[in-house]
Design a protein around this nucleic acid. Structure first.
Lengths: 343, 343
DNA sequence: TTGTACGCGTTATCAA
DNA sequence: TTGATAACGCGTACAA
């Protein structure tokens, strides 16, 4: 039950602690012979250095914090998986924290992580204001943020190409001849909410399709939120034939709303989501969506965090994640309406 | 950017370090007067105790490890949410770790968590052998394990009523008049795999419905695994009219396999899954499943872990999680075949 | 190449 | 009520 310490190894190998430390950390000059003898003792005793003690002197804990709104949204586990896989390779452990999109909770979590001594923090879509984030960044380094542009030397950004995502969805709807298009979006006015709508609406307007507040409905970024928002929107604007959702969960909620309202997908209403979580291809009809490589977001975020840790004074450029439209059954591939109109 | 230490505070307040410690931790006798003086200095200097140094001597880190096979299986995020919510309340932070059902990885993760100094570990469905687990428990306390019965003073169990879950599924199939029933299960012969099949088969046999290895097919406990296993099984045993899956992901995979094989659900094949993850009610046809309160598993696990931490010498009984059959569209609610037979 | 001695920031022990 | 001193386990100058 007692922990094996470096002293036990030293005694067992008949050397001093220092020699053990050298053998383990592979630095400093040490003879192959003694090194091997030490490592054998290490294995036999099952010795693992005590991280707390190491942290004490190295000022590194080998831990990072991963902060996001809700682990129940499948988007985040996919990103988390990327973060964790990179972390494990470098023997880092990851704290996962839910903010529930509550600024107070997020603030508390960040404080808790700092107190915990994490070496770095990754925030996926913060819900804090720019001022709060800048203040935080003044006291902490390094920070990775996705889908948020906060200009600070201690923060490195990883931005999904939200504008293009919105544009791709709009272009498809236009090509399919939709004239009445609606948006189901996040009630929290986040960076990505703004960009996605911006890309979507601007493109629609280019093609002279209307896009104003009257065809936008907001809700929680969840199944239930999407369901309720879609129901409100489709009741208010029954002429809509296409919906662009803030994320896939909201899109799936919207699909259920359509079913409950006896609206066929895609015959009567086409739907495009965002994120392309696994669910999209499982449901029936399957959901068209804007794909982002979520695992890669995690990989890139954690990799960059490690780089920042390795070179604390270096400056790193922000990175962009490309998007791609994946068409499935929730959108029409051909459009008879369009044919009729053009004839 | 330099850290304020307890010594700075001591100097500023004109007292010893020990007095500062007493003032902060609210224990030991200390005069109101000096306490206030110290706390003022603390505020002025912005002093925050260094958790690593605290951990060094208190042997508590305020962290726990949560270990499971794969965060991409929605079952685990739901449990994790319960763990995290309880943890946050008590100012604990949680490490989440994926083992990918690989014993080597799990071993490495456990070692890593121990080295990290976590105060306790929760393992959801370990893939390690009993011997390895007992050995580990000899060196670590406290451990919570779900769906695994390893008798050790340092381990507390939380067991899902797998046998009853299997029995419920079998009873339903029998009531619906199914005579040819198959099983899609986990290729890893886990505790829950054995129990679920046991409950299922024993019940079938009671009603004189066949249940042997010929109607069991294994695969990875994932969508793809379920898909492949179902395809193999239904090809080999085309007479089957009902499938019981190890978990919902496998069941969903099986549903897709049926679709690809032009088998209607539930008319030609009924399917029951296990876990009742959110997905079950989103897909179409929706999936009948054995429900477990996943969030509550997390809550109970973390709560018990805290109890064990508070009373290290106390013995705690194992706990059982009830299950319940939730019928949806993937199973027939009435069975014409049965009516015909009984007439 | 190896060992000695000290410091990291905190709490615990005991004496004052 | 307070303060000096000793841990906690490890890394690292510096000396041998």
């Amino acid at each position: 039950m007692k922990q094996v310490t470096i002293n036990d190894v030293a005694k067992a190998a008949g050397v001093s602690r220092q020699t053990v430390s050298r053998a383990m950390n592979d630095k400093g000059e040490i003879s192959e012979e003694t090194k091997e003898r030490v490592l054998t003792a290490v294995r036999e005793l099952g010795y693992r250095p005590n991280r707390m003690a190491q942290s004490m002197v190295t000022r590194r804990t080998g831990t990072v914090g991963l902060v996001f709104s809700d682990i129940l949204n499948p988007f985040f586990p996919e990103v988390a998986r990327g973060v964790q896989d990179v972390a494990r390779e470098q023997e880092y452990n990851v704290f996962l924290c839910n903010t529930d999109d509550d600024p107070k909770v997020e603030t508390q979590i960040l404080q808790s992580l700092v107190a915990q001594g994490v070496d770095g923090i990754i925030i996926l879509g913060s819900c804090l204001g720019a001022k709060a984030l800048l203040e935080f960044a003044d006291t902490y380094h390094p920070i990775i943020m996705t889908n948020r542009f906060v200009n600070h030397i201690n923060i490195n950004q990883l931005i999904v190409d939200n504008v293009r995502g919105g544009a791709l969805a709009a272009e498809h709807f236009v090509q399919q001849g939709h004239q009445h298009v609606g948006i189901i979006t996040n009630e929290n006015v986040s960076y990505s909410r703004v960009r996605r709508i911006q890309g979507f609406c601007n493109t629609l307007l280019q093609y002279e399709v209307a896009c104003d507040d009257s065809v936008i409905e907001s809700g929680a970024p969840t199944l239930a939120g999407g369901y309720a928002a879609a129901k409100r929107l489709l009741t208010r604007q029954p002429q809509l034939t296409a919906l662009f959702a803030y994320n896939d969960l909201m899109a799936l909620g919207a699909m259920r709303a359509c079913r409950d309202m006896n609206l066929n997908i895609p015959e009567q209403v086409s739907i495009i989501g965002f994120d392309d979580i696994h669910l999209t291809s499982i449901v029936s009809p399957s959901l068209s969506s804007i794909r982002v490589d979520k695992y890669m977001i995690g990989v890139k975020a954690m990799t960059r965090l490690l780089e920042m840790l390795a070179r604390p004074d270096a400056e790193f450029p922000w990175q962009e994640m490309p998007v791609e439209l994946v068409l499935r059954e929730s959108t029409r591939l051909v459009n008879p309406q369009n044919d009729l109109k053009s004839s």
